[in-house]
């Protein structure tokens, strides 16, 4: 299956979305990513039982943290699919890219850092 998805999406592989921590998503935004999304297996079909559910909790927590900080919480999202769904993966990548384009670039990129 050769499917196209937007080239701006940088994929970071993890053994299970349960490995994704709050700090990983926060630091991606801190370093200038315009958006972050986690793609986990369908709920109820995690090989490790609860990895994708934990990821969802953490995504929700990061969304709250971003709002507190003053950034759009919707820069971070969670998607689910089964591992056989290549076209859905590509569709999610396109959806997320379009969604982030509407939000515009990460405002942090224009802001100078403290030393």
């Amino acid at each position: 299956m050769r499917l196209n998805y937007p080239p701006n999406v940088k994929i970071i592989l993890v053994p299970c979305t349960g490995k994704v921590d709050v700090i990983h998503m926060l630091q991606a935004i801190q370093k200038g990513a315009d958006g972050v999304y986690c793609v986990g297996c369908l709920e109820g079909s995690c090989h490790y039982n609860e990895g994708n559910l934990r990821c969802r909790e953490r995504v929700n927590h990061v969304r709250e943290l971003l709002q507190e900080i003053g950034l759009e919480s919707d820069r971070v999202r969670m998607y689910n699919l089964s591992s056989g769904e290549g076209p859905t993966f590509a569709a999610y990548a396109t959806e997320m890219t379009e969604h982030i384009r509407k939000l515009g670039p990460n405002p942090l990129k224009k802001k100078p850092k403290g030393n």
Partner: peptide, 13 residues
């Protein structure tokens, strides 16, 4: 991470 971003957004790095 929160403080660093929050302060930058408020132009008070």
């Amino acid at each position: 991470a929160e403080l660093e971003m929050g302060r930058r957004l408020q132009d008070n790095p």
